[in-house]
């Protein structure tokens, strides 16, 4: 009797929330179709699948065991690809992750509201420009006869143009710089929102205690947004090999990579793209992609559990 009542109540609640449930359902359906169904394709990583076997071949082709994984580990470019992927990703994490936090803290201290709004708008606008456009702009700005080099030569700061885009050594700094430029403002919004939620009485109390700006930042603002910072860090670590917060590794390496900087621009994702899409080695590309996904999964679980233990903040 009590059970029936509960079911009735649930139904009633569900009916009341019908519209909202429909929204949730469409989101779940989207995830199911585009995120879960394609997971079946992972099987390709262990099969001798070729494109001429069509889609059914994913299931009917013969098993290949770990051959594709071995092929990747034995690839002549394995070391270069792994080094580039790890270094570029870590560099982005080191520079791109703290920048929005620092910027949010700085913006929070700006008292002139119109200037604050203007700065915030200008800083997040690049987020909406696609990487294709950014790469085009970068080529125009940073080529040896581009605006930046012309300016440097004109001011006499350099005698010879700097090969920003055509030198292997400059690829990583350029990639990190562009990543920060494009997405710092966007992530600042998240931290600004967290800062806005801080109880103002804490600042008032600190004022009474004679705390300065830096002290308030350190002792009130930062600890108060710790939860948000942790969640964003876990997300960034989960997508570490994809390029962290912005997920821009592939776009940058694909669009700005060339035969002159391949030693620093060739990464896991461009390797997957070339072998999979250009040479149609779908099975091999799936295997390499699976390695990346596995590492990401480990990172996200590890960072989540470490965070849970250290700070009591976690994603799940």
């Amino acid at each position: 009797m009590v059970g029936n009542q509960k079911v009735m109540e649930r139904r009633k609640n569900f009916k009341k929330q019908g519209l909202l449930q429909l929204f949730a359902l469409s989101g779940m359906l989207y995830l199911f179709v585009f995120a879960f169904v394609p997971l079946v394709g992972i099987i390709m990583a262990f099969k001798n699948y070729t494109v001429d076997q069509k889609i059914i071949g994913i299931f009917t082709s013969e098993w290949a065991g770990l051959r594709h994984f071995k092929d990747f580990f034995n690839d002549i470019n394995f070391n270069t690809i792994m080094r580039n992927t790890i270094v570029l990703s870590v560099l982005k994490l080191i520079f791109s992750f703290p920048m929005p936090i620092i910027f949010a803290l700085m913006l929070n201290e700006v008292k002139n509201q119109p200037f604050k709004r203007f700065t915030q708008t200008v800083s997040y606008l690049p987020h909406f420009i696609s990487w294709v456009i950014v790469a085009g702009l970068a080529i125009n700005f940073f080529s040896t006869d581009g605006i930046i080099n012309s300016l440097l030569l004109w001011t006499g700061l350099v005698d010879q143009p700097i090969s920003f885009l055509t030198s292997s050594n400059n690829f990583w700094p350029m990639a990190v710089f562009m990543d920060v430029w494009k997405d710092m403002g966007w992530w600042t919004i998240i931290f600004m929102a967290a800062i806005t939620g801080i109880d103002p009485t804490l600042y008032e109390a600190a004022d009474l205690d004679g705390a300065g700006r830096l002290r308030k930042m350190w002792n009130i603002t930062l600890p108060s947004i710790k939860g948000t910072v942790t969640v964003v860090l876990i997300l960034a670590l989960g997508n570490l090999f994809g390029g962290g917060l912005s997920g821009s590794n592939f776009e940058q390496s694909y669009l700005l990579g060339n035969t002159m900087n391949f030693e620093h621009s060739e990464i896991l994702q461009t390797h997957i793209f070339k072998t999979g899409m250009v040479h149609s080695r779908f099975a091999y590309a799936t295997a390499v992609g699976l390695i990346q996904s596995f590492v990401s999964l480990v990172l996200i679980f590890a960072s989540n559990s470490v965070s849970k233990k250290i700070s009591d903040n976690s994603l799940f």
Binding site: T50, V51, D52, K54, I55, M277, S280, F282
Partner: peptide
């Protein structure tokens, strides 16, 4: 390559690549 894998093929294909994949009785 994607068209072949998805079997979403037109009547004719004019290409200079993937000749060995297209030279296949399934396709």
């Amino acid at each position: 390559g994607v068209l072949i894998a998805s079997n979403d093929l037109p009547d004719l294909i004019y290409t200079s690549q993937l000749g060995d994949r297209l030279s296949n009785p399934n396709i």
